[in-house]
Amino acid sequence: MTAEALTILQAAGAERIEHPGGTLLAHLQRVSALLASWGARPALVSAGLCHAFYGTDGFPVALLDLGRRAELVEAIGVEAEALVYFYASCDRKASYQGLTDDRGTFVDRFTGARMHPSLETRRDFAELTAANELDIAAVSPEVRTRYGADLRDLLTRWRPLLSEPAWAHCRSVLGQADRTKPHLAVERDRS
């Protein structure tokens, strides 16, 4: 976590935005810490801290306009900011299903561009998504009850992209999801 990123987050009011488990700032810090505990490289840990800067398909609150990407690059570096943009740009409905497939299409919700991201990019995206979603599920029994089965299904499909620590954390937080509950659109409702 860089001091510059925290400064931008505070200036954007992240500590005043409600989020499961407290505030958006607290969530972002937990996601970053979770990635670090899984052994993620520094750029991915920084991306975890900043993953909601441009809003997401499931959390439309943007802390920084896309026209100001250079400010985030200054704070966390080119690689980490590119991960933040990639995460924020995901059209979840169009992209989640094919993420494990080398030829799966990823759709940028900002530009409409369709691409086939590299294996490393897909792994980073899956790891960041897992940290984000599992943090929310861990702090919110309501979210875990409502979306736990869908989240476990999603992360099970993405298992080939996840690190061993991420997969272990998934099993720890979600256990055996209740398969009798109807599946809901987990891809749409959270950052």
Rank of each mutant, 00 (worst) to 15 (best):
55 G>L: 04
144 R>N: 00
99 L>F: 02
103 R>W: 11
77 G>F: 08
32 S>A: 13
36 A>N: 14
1 M>P: 07
183 H>Q: 14
84 V>L: 05
185 A>D: 14
190 R>S: 04
42 P>V: 05
175 G>A: 05
87 Y>F: 14
170 C>V: 15
124 D>E: 10
38 W>P: 06
19 H>L: 01
61 V>G: 01
185 A>F: 05
86 F>C: 00
38 W>T: 06
131 A>L: 09
67 G>D: 11
17 I>R: 08
79 E>S: 09
112 G>P: 02
9 L>N: 03
115 M>S: 07
169 H>A: 06
182 P>H: 08
17 I>G: 01
183 H>C: 03
18 E>G: 11
25 L>E: 06
50 C>V: 12
9 L>G: 03
22 G>N: 12
111 T>H: 04
132 N>Q: 06
183 H>E: 13
37 S>A: 15
153 D>I: 11
123 R>N: 02
37 S>F: 13
98 G>T: 08
140 S>K: 08
148 G>D: 09
98 G>K: 05
120 E>N: 09
20 P>Y: 02
185 A>W: 06
100 T>V: 15
28 L>G: 02
93 K>W: 03
65 D>N: 08
124 D>A: 13
6 L>V: 10
64 L>Q: 05
30 R>F: 05
121 T>F: 00
58 G>N: 07
73 V>D: 01
18 E>D: 14
72 L>V: 09
162 L>D: 11
14 A>N: 11
70 A>F: 12
32 S>H: 10
190 R>F: 11
91 D>N: 12
165 P>V: 14
86 F>T: 08
94 A>Y: 04
61 V>K: 10
150 D>H: 12
43 A>T: 15
72 L>M: 10
89 S>M: 09
168 A>T: 15
28 L>D: 14
79 E>L: 12
135 D>N: 10
147 Y>A: 05
29 Q>F: 05
130 A>T: 08
29 Q>D: 03
127 E>P: 06
180 T>M: 08
63 L>F: 07
118 S>I: 03
116 H>D: 00
162 L>W: 15
71 E>Y: 01
178 D>N: 11
162 L>T: 09
147 Y>E: 01
136 I>Y: 02
128 L>Q: 10
109 R>E: 00
136 I>L: 09
186 V>Y: 13
136 I>W: 04
179 R>N: 01
53 F>L: 01
163 S>W: 15
156 T>N: 00
81 E>K: 05
57 D>E: 02
